[in-house]
Design a protein around this nucleic acid. Structure first.
Lengths: 263, 263
DNA sequence: CGACACCTTGAAGAGGTTCAAGAAATGTGG
DNA sequence: CCACATTTCTTGAACCTCTTCAAGGTGTCG
């Protein structure tokens, strides 16, 4: 089957130009620049003039490492910054007073988290690293200041927020009108598509989250997630070995996602 | 019971300072100012200097009327403007290729719609008026331009977008982890709270949407919505007469919403 | 190697859906 | 303003999907 093959192929690195010398200065926070970051195209606007690019560097104050299982920010904490994920994988989740909680998203390299905090000046969800991660800390007042001067940045910020709104519309559609198989199929397709955009395989992925976290995100119990995976395996749509997933039949997944019409 | 009483009490107007003279000039679109609009506190930043307030007037190009059942914008249409609802009630909904669709929200006076369009430069959902409505048309390029100069406006735009993201987190929590009764209870509490903030009753409301639309929003079938209403009636929590709802026991609704702990 | 977290699978049960029929309200056109 | 068509809402009964409870298996990490 596929033992370590997945990890090695799927782990094709997107970046290798880190400045390790500055890195050693501070184990927790490192001063760095966007202008020579190769994730730039994911989190920053494109087509900037050199002078603007230089100014953008001012946005990122420092980098911060977050160990697996640790939180980047928590519900109730003061909001100060947005975070661009440089490496690693996060989940965000909201909770009710009565212990229930709901994973609202999984975020990977190049994606921005923390937008929830703007409106109340405090975060309203938790961001938890699902693997050791590193983020660029972008103080929001600095973003606002600079985006008054750099139009492209201003527009970019608006787009990022709008994108998040549209993404959540998609999740609402999923939660509101799809059945278990459709949800899981949509989830897998979405994950693999985002990973592919980052240079990873189109057909293989390593899940960074548990069945329970997938279930929370999809509005299902972990047993249902597990059973649905097994069903897909029976139907030769995927191979699953714990968190290693190989998609054998992408079209089948797509058909499952929009198949309500079949009746 | 409560026949027309609901309508008359619930319809307590928030505004009465419309400039009817300019209104007659054009049946579809009317040029007006924010500075003397009493919904200002809902859609515009507060604590502006007089000069800034004056500039804000430039944001609203025109007003536009939308008849009940008509769309303000549609999925796929070019995005140009955000809309501040002046009067009336909207729903927004997304759809899949295969006819399924999902109501993503209900919007009322003072709320802003159209944010979904920013990221792709095209709208990704439909906005449908559930009753005759009037909106202020705010061309987005003008908003961006002005928010580069008026810091309060810039921050306000960010807050509005963040608020929408947080609202959607709440809907995801609802769709992902609540049972039918909890969903409907949360829905009613949310509606009545927003209406109350606009000067309407805390306990009476007129639903502007059908059971089916409520169901779509809550991820339930219309029959389930109807049955759950009936259940609430049996338990003396609400009175329901078609779309007229009187809440008899707000605390009971609140208890239903966070009662997962009971076990 | 043992403890712990995570995953899988089965069987029973509950909550919500589907299908169907009828009642109530709303709107339309004469 | 009334009659009729249409839409919307309610309720029942059967069914189905997902959940719950339970047990055992697998993998991981100190």
């Amino acid at each position: 089957m596929f033992d370590t093959a997945v990890t090695s192929e799927a782990a094709k690195p997107l970046s290798s130009d880190l400045d390790f010398s500055t890195r050693r200065m501070n184990p927790q926070t490192i001063k760095v620049a966007c202008s020579n970051c190769n994730l730039r195209e994911l989190c920053m606007p494109m087509g900037l003039k050199p002078e603007e690019l230089e100014r953008i560097d001012e946005v990122v104050a420092v980098r911060r490492k977050v160990k697996r299982g640790a939180t980047l920010f928590r519900n109730g904490e003061k909001f100060t910054s947005l975070y661009a994920i440089r490496t690693g994988f996060f989940k965000t989740c909201v909770a009710t007073e009565d212990g229930r909680d709901q994973v609202t998203g999984f975020q990977m390299a190049g994606e921005i988290i923390g937008l929830d905090g703007i409106v109340q000046d405090h975060h309203t969800c938790d961001a938890v690293a699902l693997e050791d991660a590193e983020v660029c800390v972008m103080p929001f007042d600095r973003i606002e200041e600079l985006s008054r001067e750099v139009t492209a940045l201003q527009h970019h910020v608006h787009k990022i927020m709008s994108r998040e709104i549209v993404r959540e519309h998609g999740v609402m559609l999923l939660l509101g009108s799809m059945r278990a198989e459709e949800r899981l199929a949509a989830f897998l397709l979405n994950l693999v598509q985002r990973l592919h955009a980052r240079g990873f395989s189109q057909s293989e992925l390593v899940l960074r989250m548990t069945r329970e976290e997938i279930g929370s995100y999809l509005g299902l119990k972990l047993e249902t997630v597990s059973r649905t995976f097994s069903k897909f395996v029976d139907e030769n749509i995927v191979e699953v070995k714990q968190r290693h997933v190989r998609i054998l039949d992408t079209d089948a997944l797509k058909r499952i996602v929009n198949s309500q019409t079949c009746q």
